[in-house]
Design a protein around this nucleic acid. Structure first.
Length: 533
RNA sequence: GGGCGGGUGGCGAAGAGGCUAACGCUGUGGUCUGCAAAAUCACCAUUCACCGGUUCGAAUCCGGUCCCGCCCUCCA
């Protein structure tokens, strides 16, 4: 498979150090705030990269760090009257909540700067010993001029940078481009003891040190947002290669930005959207789908309409899951037999699976791969529409096709939807029962009203009629499906009554829909599903 | 100013020398249907920012022009 390498500017055949293993280091967030949608893009992108490599049979060693020692954290902590490390630790916890909600798989290691100070000091000493760094007044700087390959990742030359010097000149530095490896502590700042006095690590050194510690002096893939190319990753290379004398990373991968009105979404511009708020309105599946429906290196513009479109599009794919499940429910493949029409269909699915894999093999082209997923969905739906329900071969074909379809969706992490809101939903449905019962009582159909009461009583829900309506009392869990099935039964009864009570049937359907449950009448019966797909 | 990446239908987005320019959203018409929804079938870019060139052949390669974004300062 091929991967676009920022270092060479082209797609290259992926050759890992160890044929069946791959080491990946991704720059994680600086934890002084909740993560926003822009932060979520690399998380989802590299989670998808990881899942795909696992699907291809690689043993993936995935490392995602937290920068928990940093100026922004210190400032924020000072504002809030808190210890910097505590503040950072708090937002690391919050990070995990968000990442878990987005179905990001945990890394093998989540190293933190604060827990690697001795290793960092050792690395800085090593750089000084080799002449790549120098100390002044408790600060230690990297001597950029000493590292001949400086600029190779970002495509700039040292000479130009020395000449361009837009960087503020600091008298204590030999050259404007030199960057801090260790910063002396100012009054009131957190610090650690070091050979150069009390201080803390500079911004870039932690990633060099921690990635080498967990993945080795040379490893396969290093990822992050494209704004990290310079200076962060450039500096990581300088530090690591100066120290080890070896190639630091073989493949550099960088994701593009999320923009809002064609402006970069960023904390400094203030045009960011907190992931947590978005996840209140849209499921993790939808957010992931939105993020990977565009190739990871392209910019991605954000507005509410985009998520809405993603929701609808993904809904089509998830609907196929539902349709197929309905058709094969309770059926277990009893023989290998697939032939004739079924075989033809299955082959078309397998062909699309191969195309999907080819697309992913070409620098993780999720956008193209998703296109094939839609074609597959289309094929499956069409087959289902005219399937012979008694044919063992055709049922087997559907079962196998679904296995393929859902496993591809799982690589992308877009079929994870859990029915998490079921409890809330159950409460809404109880309200609907109350509504129907109220209606029945008004029309003096006490038989129906009583039937509903008994049904609910059986579920240990008691109804009490008062002058202003009904109230219920219940304890414990209520099974949502039982409630919905009962409503469906009532509704079909209304439809069959002599006077064809469609008004009442539609009332039920409409209120269910308003409550988030969609009913569909089909030849095989009524189908229901939760609206928020 | 320097470095990097872009400009494809109403919108989003693949395609990187040669099949009808994927796929999704939106829209239109048909089938199904008490209605609705879903599903299904069909239609919706003679053209890929612009101008030249290379080639039997270019959205794709080369040169120029015009726009746009990112980085060069903390940012995913």
């Amino acid at each position: 498979m091929r991967v676009y390498n920022t270092l060479s500017g082209k797609k290259e055949e992926l050759k890992t150090l160890n044929p069946h293993k791959v080491g990946i280091y991704v720059c994680g967030p600086t934890t002084y705030n909740y993560i926003h949608l822009g932060n979520a893009r690399p998380l989802v992108v590299f989670d998808t990269v990881r899942r795909y490599l696992e699907y291809k049979g690689y043993e993936v060693n995935y490392v995602l760090n937290f920068t928990d020692v940093d100026d922004k954290i210190i400032n924020r902590a000072r504002q809030e009257g808190q210890e910097a490390i505590e503040l950072a630790a708090h937002y690391i916890d919050e990070y995990f909540q968000d990442a878990d909600a987005l179905n990001i798989k945990r890394a093998q290691v989540h190293p933190r700067v604060s827990q690697h100070i001795p290793e960092i000091i050792e690395a800085v000493e090593g750089l000084i010993d080799k002449g790549f760094a120098y100390e002044t007044e408790g600060d230690v700087y990297f001597r950029v001029k000493a590292f001949k390959d400086y600029g190779k990742l970002s495509g700039r030359s040292l000479d130009e940078m020395l000449a361009g010097a837009r960087v503020e000149i600091d008298e204590r530095k030999e050259e404007a481009v030199d960057f801090a490896l260790w910063k002396a502590a100012k009054e009131g700042e957190p610090f650690w003891e070091s050979p150069w006095g009390q201080g803390r690590p500079g911004w870039h050194i932690e990633c060099s040190v921690m990635s080498i510690k967990y993945l080795g002096e040379t490893f396969d893939i290093h990822g992050g947002g494209s704004d990290l190319i310079f200076p962060h990753h450039e500096n990581e290379i300088a530090q690591a290669e100066a120290l080890s004398g070896k190639t630091f990373v073989n493949y550099w991968m960088h994701n593009g930005f999320i923009t809002v009105n064609n402006e970069k979404m960023s904390k400094s511009l203030g045009n960011f959207f907190i992931l947590r708020d978005i996840l209140e309105k849209y499921s993790a599946d939808v957010v992931r789908f939105y993020l990977i429906a565009t190739h990871y290196r392209s910019p991605l513009d954000f507005d509410d309409g985009k998520l809405e479109e993603a929701r609808k599009a993904l809904g089509r794919l998830q609907n196929t899951l539902l349709l197929a499940d309905e058709y094969t429910r309770g059926y277990i493949e009893e023989s290998q037999e697939v032939e004739g029409k079924g075989l033809l269909f299955l082959n078309s699915v397998i062909e699309l699976e191969n195309k999907f894999v080819q697309a992913m093999d070409d620098d993780f082209n999720t956008a193209k791969a998703i296109g094939f997923l839609f074609e597959m969905s289309h094929n499956i739906n069409a087959f289902l529409a005219e399937v012979d329900r008694d044919s063992v071969s055709e049922r087997n074909a559907v079962l196998r096709a679904m296995k393929v379809f859902s496993s591809l969706g799982d690589i992308l992490g877009i079929f994870m939807e859990k029915t998490k809101n079921e409890e809330e939903m159950a409460e809404k449905i109880l309200e609907i029962f109350a509504g129907v019962r109220q209606l029945a009582r008004k029309e003096k159909e006490f038989q129906l009203a009583d039937e509903i009461r008994e049904f609910l009583n059986d579920l240990e829900v008691t109804i009490e009629d008062t002058a202003n309506g009904s109230r219920f009392r219940y304890s414990g869990n209520i099974e949502l499906p039982i409630l919905v099935e009962k409503l469906i039964e009532l509704r079909s009864r209304f439809k069959k009554e002599k006077k064809k009570n469609y008004d009442r049937a539609d009332f039920l359907r409409d209120t269910l829909q308003a409550g988030g449950i969609i009913l569909e009448d089909t030849r095989e019966g009524v189908r229901w599903k939760l609206a928020d797909a």
